[in-house]
Amino acid sequence: MNRTDRLYALVEELRAVSPRPRSARWLAERFEVSSRTIERDLSALQQSGVPIWAEPGRTGGYSIDPSHTLPPLGLTPDEALAVTVGLGMLASSPFREAAASAVRKVTAVMDARSLQTTAELAARIHFLDDGQARDAPAALGGVLGSGRVLTIAYRDRSGAETVRDVEPLGYVGKGTDWYLIAWCRLRAGVRAFRGDRIVSAEATGERAPQRELRPEDLDIAYGELRAVSIGR
């Protein structure tokens, strides 16, 4: 996470628990940086006008002005349940950390009665899988937004491992499996890389060229692709 993203995430974390404080140590562990880095970030936010203040004492920490928190979401328990179930289905995907963060934000701004009703309903919903962990690397979650070329180490079905530079184009999810769709420079073509076979992934400093991802390029032998859409 770069500093700009961390500053935004700090504000959202304090919003979610306002008016309760968070200690610098807790925030440092949450964002995997030092307490000194967190204190510098909070100071920068304060200087930019964000209403954050420090509460002294053993149980103190940093909090944000409750009047500047986000307004409650106008979600019914059924709508909140649909959101949490949908996000829960991403638990093995490259977006699992963002999904977990989104769930915390949704629940943080719900009123107590709606939250209790949603929690009771959610406790009656379960996911069935085959018990095999097939988590895609969490580092893949932000590659589309970054627009950078990736260097990945990939292990094929026979166990052979190769290192490739790839240009991320999109994702395909099938059950609990997630595939990174990318232009593979090693093979000079579009390839699908199953998430649990990606041993490591590291963004380079090179911006990937614009390429169009067409369903026919994927050569899917069965099933139909369904795109994710966000409507108004």
Rank of each mutant, 00 (worst) to 15 (best):
P51T: 03
A100E: 13
D177L: 09
P209Y: 07
E202M: 11
A99T: 00
A139C: 05
I52N: 07
A91P: 00
L128A: 11
S48G: 08
G205P: 00
L121S: 12
G173A: 15
A44W: 04
P66H: 09
A28F: 04
S67V: 10
A100K: 11
W26F: 06
W183D: 03
S114C: 02
A123M: 05
R197S: 01
L186G: 00
M89R: 14
E32I: 06
F31P: 09
S158I: 02
R157N: 06
D196T: 01
V83L: 11
A112Y: 00
E55V: 15
C184V: 03
G170A: 03
A188Y: 11
M1F: 03
S18W: 07
W183M: 11
P77E: 12
L186H: 06
V190A: 05
L7E: 03
G142L: 12
T84G: 00
M110P: 03
L7S: 01
L213Q: 08
R15E: 12
N2V: 05
T151H: 07
A112S: 10
T204V: 01
R191K: 06
R25Q: 15
E167L: 06
A91G: 07
E120G: 00
L218G: 04
S67T: 15
I125P: 10
A28T: 08
L70H: 03
D5V: 02
E13R: 12
G131Q: 06
L225I: 14
E206K: 12
S34F: 03
V106M: 09
V50Q: 10
T107K: 14
L70K: 06
I181L: 15
E97S: 13
A16L: 02
E216C: 04
V166M: 09
T69Q: 15
V103K: 09
L121W: 04
E29K: 12
S101W: 11
A16F: 02
A54S: 14
L70G: 00
R148A: 08
E161Q: 12
G195H: 10
T162Y: 06
A123F: 00
D165T: 07
P66F: 08
V109S: 10
G173W: 05
G142Y: 11
L169S: 03
L42Y: 05
T4N: 10
T162Q: 09
G147R: 05
Y154G: 04
M1C: 00
D111S: 08
G142E: 15
L75G: 01
M110T: 01
D41L: 01
D129N: 13
P51V: 09
W178H: 10
P71Y: 02
R113P: 00
A100I: 07
I220E: 11
L121T: 11
D217A: 13
H68V: 02
A182N: 02
N2K: 09
D135R: 15
A138L: 04
R22N: 08
P21N: 06
R3E: 11
L140V: 00
I230G: 13
A203L: 12
R155Q: 14
M89T: 12
Q116E: 13
D5H: 05
R185I: 01
S67E: 15
R232L: 14
E39A: 00
R157A: 11
A108Y: 13
S146D: 15
A82S: 12
E13H: 12
A201C: 06
A44C: 06
I38G: 04
A44K: 09
